[in-house]
């Protein structure tokens, strides 16, 4: 078991799954918008890890690596837009607390 550690696919997939879950729970439980955005980044990082680990098993086609490249690019763009919206929200409400987003009632 010890020698297998880090040399089998399952370890990486489990780690990715746990990271993804931590991110998802953080997103749902926390109400600080900045922390929620960081939780989404955690989830995307977990996806990256899963892709690279799977690519290691699927041989030399590099499809998984290419996918991760795009995820990283998109994540950066997403954060830029997200923080822009957070700043705009903060200017108007003086808060980054998503419970303060209550002008619209359902």
């Amino acid at each position: 078991m010890g020698a297998l550690l880090g040399n089998v696919l399952e370890h990486y997939v489990m780690l990715a799954g746990v990271l993804f879950t931590i991110g998802a729970v953080g997103f749902l439980v926390r109400r600080n918008v900045l922390v929620q955005l960081m939780s989404i980044e955690l989830m995307l990082n977990a996806v990256n890890l899963a892709f690279v680990a799977y690519n290691r098993v699927h041989g030399d086609d590099m499809n998984g690596h290419m996918f991760v490249f795009f995820i990283i690019a998109v994540a950066a763009a997403e954060v830029a837009v997200g923080l822009a919206i957070v700043l705009s929200f903060y200017r108007l409400t003086g808060s980054v607390h998503s419970d303060d987003a209550d002008a619209l009632k359902g």
Binding site: I40, L44, G82, S98
Partner: peptide, 16 residues
Amino acid sequence: TEAALKYFLLGSFAAA
């Protein structure tokens, strides 16, 4: 702005 924030957060979550 609030609408944009809500949609952005949930949309990014769904994309993940």
